Amino acid sequence: MIAFTEAVTSGHAQSVVRARQLWRRARIEHRGILRGLRAPAVRYIRTEADLLAALAAAYEKAGAPPLRTLQQRAGKAGTAPLLALNTAARIIKRTHLPTSVKPFEAFLTGCGIGQRDRGPWLEAWARVRARSVDTLPPSRALLSPVPALLVGPSPLDAQELQSIEQVLRGLHHADRQHLLYVLRGRASAASPSKVG
């Protein structure tokens, strides 16, 4: 459709932009999903469900492009795409948020949300992530690596251990693994070696 518009109008930029707008509106109307999402305005996002609904709405407002198109629009870091197809699918289906801010921003880019408009989105991301650390249910809690790191009697009480575990749960998986690796190395270096 865009190629046709470019050919008919000799590539007149305003005509192409207008054709894209009309195509996007028609696609939104045809799919009929946007109306049912009931996504809050970005500044009112407080929960993961709110943020996922708002992201799904952003995707629908972008014309619900195919995932590969969304991935291409999101850009690349070297040769690797910034947005994995499975991550995009989980966001669109509203099942999971990305685990770090990079794919979150890549999704926004893919939906046509530029740097200038990202501030409120990043604030919403931070609110939701901070809240999810505070309200993580015990069934999803990290199996406690902290007691295993301690050598000898624990200098920390139960409340301090719980606070450390809460911080660990809030970290991105790769960051958490790196921190645990470093801490385990220090704990084993601090423990007296047995001579046999």
Rank of each mutant, 00 (worst) to 15 (best):
A84F: 05
K194A: 11
S154I: 05
R73N: 14
L51F: 04
G196K: 13
E165R: 13
A7D: 13
P98G: 09
A126E: 15
A148M: 08
A54S: 15
V133Y: 00
V8Y: 12
A174L: 12
R176M: 04
G114P: 05
L51R: 02
V128Y: 07
L149N: 02
K61S: 12
L108C: 04
S154F: 06
A130C: 11
L67I: 14
A7G: 10
A80C: 05
I2Q: 10
R35P: 01
P145E: 03
R94N: 04
E6N: 13
R118F: 02
T69D: 12
L108R: 06
L97P: 00
R27C: 09
L122H: 07
G11F: 05
Q166H: 09
T9L: 11
A56M: 02
S139P: 00
N86L: 13
S15F: 14
G63E: 11
V101G: 03
T87Q: 06
P153E: 15
G170H: 03
P65S: 09
R73G: 06
Q14D: 15
E60L: 02
I2E: 14
G110R: 09
V146A: 08
H172W: 03
L22T: 13
V8N: 04
S163E: 15
S154W: 06
L179E: 01
A126G: 08
L97V: 10
S132F: 01
G185V: 02
P145G: 01
E29V: 13
V167P: 00
R90Y: 06
T69M: 08
D175T: 15
A56F: 03
T5G: 03
A187F: 10
E48L: 03
V8G: 04
L143E: 15
R127L: 07
R118S: 10
S139W: 05
V42M: 02
G112T: 12
T109K: 11
R94P: 00
L183T: 01
P65M: 11
V151G: 11
A148N: 12
D157R: 10
M1F: 09
A174F: 03
